[in-house]
Design a protein around this nucleic acid. Sequence first.
RNA 1: UGGGGCGUCGUCAAGUGGCAAGACACGGGACUUUGGAUCCCGCAUCGGAGGUUCGAAUCCUCCCGCCCCAGCCA
Length: 568
Amino acid sequence: MATPERAESLDFVRAKVAEDTASGRYEGRVHTRFPPEPNGYLHIGHAKAFNLNFSIADEFGGLCNLRFDDTNPTAEETEYVESILEDIHWLGYDWGDRLYYASDYFEQLHEYAVDLIRRGKAYVCDLSPEETREYRGTLKEPGKDSPYRDRPVEENLGLFARMKAGEFPDGARTLRAKIDMASPNINLRDPVIYRILHAEHHRTGDTWRIYPMYDWAHGLSDSIEGVTHSICSIEFENHRPLYDWFLDELEVFHPQQIEFARLYVSRMILSKRRLLQVVERGYVDGWDDARMPTLAGLRRRGYTPESIREFLKRVGVAKTESEIDVALLEHCVREDLNAKAPRVMAVLDPLRVVIENYPEEQGEEFEAVNNPEDPDAGSRKLPFSRVVFIERADFQEDPPKKFHRLAPGREVRLKHAYLVRCEKVVKDKATGEVVELRCSYDPETRGGDAPDGRKVKGTLHWVSAEHAVDAEVRILDYLLREPDPEADTAADAGAELDDLINPSSRTVLKGCKVEPSLADSPPGSRYQFLRQGYFCTDSVDSRPGAPVFNRTVSLRDTWAKIAKAAAK
RNA sequence: UGGGGCGUCGUCAAGUGGCAAGACACGGGACUUUGGAUCCCGCAUCGGAGGUUCGAAUCCUCCCGCCCCAGCCA
């Protein structure tokens, strides 16, 4: 059978799959599946799961199905189904013609339940939800048998049929597996496998009045599809004995469940329930807000599918619960975008600079390389004129040590253009704020090099005032205030979101000045704003002539470190 | 002594008895028309204590810590 391409050591999941193919289990076949419940948008944690399932199938020459686990009609919506389809495709995976729904199997799942009743291994229980809980016992004490546990098969069959026919209200009865009320594994204490729900299902409408529980539907769906390796996250480890029990009792095809640790990322909220709160309470604009850890959010923010796949590859797969530093994710986008993103000049906080010895009527264009990392990226024309904007932070009247940028009397290079010297500082008389710089340029330095060989320490980005396009730029920060996982857990415990959410997770900059080539930037375009970071044209709010950009991630900022160290 | 799982660098993670991979982060240096990129260099004795062994992160014993399970959610 096929062996995976990786030369390095295999993670434990792949090792297990390799062991099975080597031993000829399942005839050496590998078939996986990704089973999301359509009750929210997919986030990067889900991406770890489907990346694993699709990749393993691919590496072992097998197949991976996409199956919606839609057994709870009260939580599921078609909007979520559509977003999930889109997001998986976006990340680069394809399920071919194997798109399934657990609801496709409702009929067969029901037949299996009847079979289990006939085998004397399931019964209709009349206990209320509260009573069921009491009878279940606790973590340390065994439960006790339901008074309905020994109902005759025929009676069970009759009652189950009436449940199906919708004769009873929600919660009136359940179908339960007859296993062991004293099991130390609570999942085995006669778990409910069918409940009555008079709810409208997003696909089957009102044809069903009873719905299978996860444990019943999941393993059997895997079995029906011929899945060989059912790879899921670690909280289902306690469910594996039940998964196995159903399959064994029914004597049907028996896949192998394997559990791995979920992905946690510092500064990110990755619980669907909490994410739903963040959306519903308006902390963000929606599931695709550029601050969200959803794939829709990351996409809008400018993350590439390649960078996310690389991140997941580096994160690895193990059983240890761990939290990955968000810095690794950021490193992965920078690495990818550094190679791909065209460089452009954009001034976020403009400071006007008049080049006094540059003739008013004069204008010229410079040839600017689009990406020094990619010779095939070509170049573009950059217009220059007497008045330009530079970044306010690139000038200091009283520069600290190691500040290599512009200051009174100092000479720097305007990238691709000329060497300029600051001759005069114009301030607002009332506030003392610097409003304009008067500079001179050296005509001999066209392109940025001085014929006399003199060097400058700083190179600044700039935009010609006459040609600049106004833009809105959104600087996105982490949604969580604190990096530690405690914050995540606290949110789960119901702590106030206000205490956990970073109050300045988004800063909107208006009146930014960008080079003219960006005027009609197509939504979703990615750039490196020279010396600043990677930015992506917003797919929702950007308009031709009035572009809007989201900062994907900043560039590594050595100067910030130096300045910070000096401040101490 | 309810059951199950997990503990290797700041953060992930290899390693399955024979000198503790790699990545990110961090620190230092080179180079640079992005204080970007690139390139060098540095950075752990494996939760603890005993034991077995010529030799242990890997085997045994005990201890400590963290996670999951008491939905008619998934």
